[in-house]
Measured scan of single mutants.
Amino acid sequence: AQASVVANQLIPINTYLTLVMMRSEVVTPVGIPAEDIPRLVSMQVNRAVPLGTTLMPDMVKGYA
């Protein structure tokens, strides 16, 4: 199964992502692939992302 990117903490709206904020986990539904974690660093979330939430492409500015 493919691992997705999951929030490792509460990520406030407009926060620039860093490695410590994200982890990879096999979840349903599938979100942003874990292999894209390096690409996500320094990208901004466009909403608050609670701890344990799967990151979806529409949550990250400029990802989709």
Rank of each mutant, 00 (worst) to 15 (best):
A1N: 07
A1P: 15
Q2E: 15
Q2K: 04
Q2L: 09
Q2I: 09
Q2Y: 11
Q2S: 11
Q2R: 03
Q2A: 13
Q2W: 06
A3R: 04
A3L: 11
A3M: 14
A3E: 15
A3K: 07
S4M: 02
S4Y: 04
S4L: 02
S4N: 01
V5I: 12
V5Y: 01
V5C: 05
V5A: 13
V6M: 05
V6N: 01
V6T: 11
A7Y: 01
A7E: 01
A7C: 03
A7W: 02
A7L: 03
A7H: 01
A7G: 05
N8M: 11
N8H: 11
Q9I: 14
Q9V: 15
Q9P: 00
Q9K: 08
L10H: 14
L10A: 12
L10I: 14
L10G: 14
L10N: 13
I11S: 02
I11V: 15
I11T: 01
P12W: 09
P12R: 05
P12H: 08
P12G: 11
P12D: 12
P12L: 14
P12M: 08
I13L: 14
I13T: 12
N14W: 07
N14F: 09
T15E: 15
T15F: 06
T15Q: 13
T15R: 04
T15L: 03
T15I: 06
T15H: 08
T15P: 00
T15Y: 13
T15N: 06
Y16M: 15
Y16F: 13
Y16W: 10
Y16T: 12
L17N: 00
L17E: 00
L17I: 14
L17C: 02
T18M: 13
T18Y: 04
T18Q: 13
T18I: 07
T18H: 14
T18P: 00
L19N: 10
L19V: 15
L19P: 15
L19K: 12
V20G: 15
V20D: 14
V20M: 09
V20I: 12
V20N: 15
V20Q: 12
M21V: 06
M21I: 04
M21L: 10
M22S: 00
M22W: 02
M22K: 00
M22Q: 01
R23Q: 05
R23E: 06
R23F: 06
R23A: 09
R23W: 05
R23N: 07
S24I: 13
S24P: 13
S24M: 10
S24T: 09
S24E: 08
E25W: 04
E25G: 07
E25S: 05
E25K: 03
E25P: 02
E25V: 04
V26Y: 11
V26H: 07
V26M: 12
V26R: 02
V26E: 15
V26S: 09
V27Y: 02
V27I: 11
V27K: 07
V27F: 02
V27A: 06
V27L: 12
T28Q: 14
T28W: 03
T28G: 06
T28H: 06
T28S: 11
T28M: 08
T28K: 03
P29Y: 04
P29S: 06
P29G: 05
P29F: 04
P29H: 07
P29K: 05
V30F: 15
V30T: 13
V30Y: 15
V30I: 14
V30P: 10
V30A: 08
V30E: 15
G31Q: 03
G31F: 02
G31T: 02
G31P: 01
G31L: 01
G31E: 01
G31C: 03
I32G: 01
I32T: 02
I32H: 00
I32D: 00
P33A: 09
P33T: 07
P33W: 11
P33Q: 04
P33H: 12
A34G: 12
A34S: 15
A34W: 10
A34D: 14
E35S: 11
E35Q: 08
E35Y: 06
E35I: 05
E35G: 09
D36R: 05
D36P: 00
D36N: 12
D36E: 08
D36W: 09
I37F: 04
I37T: 07
P38Q: 14
P38C: 04
P38W: 06
P38N: 15
R39E: 04
R39T: 10
R39P: 03
R39G: 10
R39C: 10
L40E: 00
L40F: 02
L40W: 01
L40A: 01
V41I: 08
V41Q: 10
V41K: 05
V41Y: 08
V41L: 15
S42R: 06
S42W: 04
S42F: 08
S42L: 11
S42Q: 13
M43D: 05
M43L: 09
Q44E: 13
Q44P: 08
Q44C: 03
Q44S: 07
Q44L: 09
Q44V: 11
Q44D: 03
Q44A: 09
Q44G: 05
V45T: 13
V45L: 06
V45R: 00
N46M: 15
N46E: 13
N46D: 12
R47Y: 13
R47I: 10
R47H: 11
A48F: 12
A48I: 14
A48Y: 14
A48Q: 15
V49C: 03
V49G: 00
V49N: 01
P50Y: 09
P50Q: 09
P50N: 09
P50K: 11
L51P: 15
L51T: 08
L51C: 03
L51W: 12
L51V: 08
L51Y: 08
L51G: 12
L51F: 12
G52Q: 11
G52I: 02
G52E: 12
G52A: 11
T53W: 15
T53H: 08
T53A: 13
T53N: 10
T53V: 15
T54N: 02
T54H: 04
T54Q: 05
T54C: 03
L55R: 00
L55H: 01
L55G: 00
L55I: 13
M56L: 06
M56H: 14
M56E: 10
M56R: 09
M56D: 10
M56Q: 08
M56W: 07
P57L: 04
P57Y: 05
P57T: 07
D58I: 12
D58T: 14
D58Q: 11
D58S: 09
D58E: 12
M59Q: 07
M59S: 08
V60K: 01
V60Q: 00
V60L: 15
V60E: 01
V60Y: 00
V60T: 02
V60A: 02
V60M: 06
V60H: 00
V60F: 06
K61E: 10
K61C: 13
G62K: 05
G62R: 04
G62N: 11
Y63P: 08
Y63H: 07
Y63W: 13
Y63T: 06
Y63R: 04
Y63E: 04
A64D: 14
A64F: 03
A64T: 10
A64Q: 13
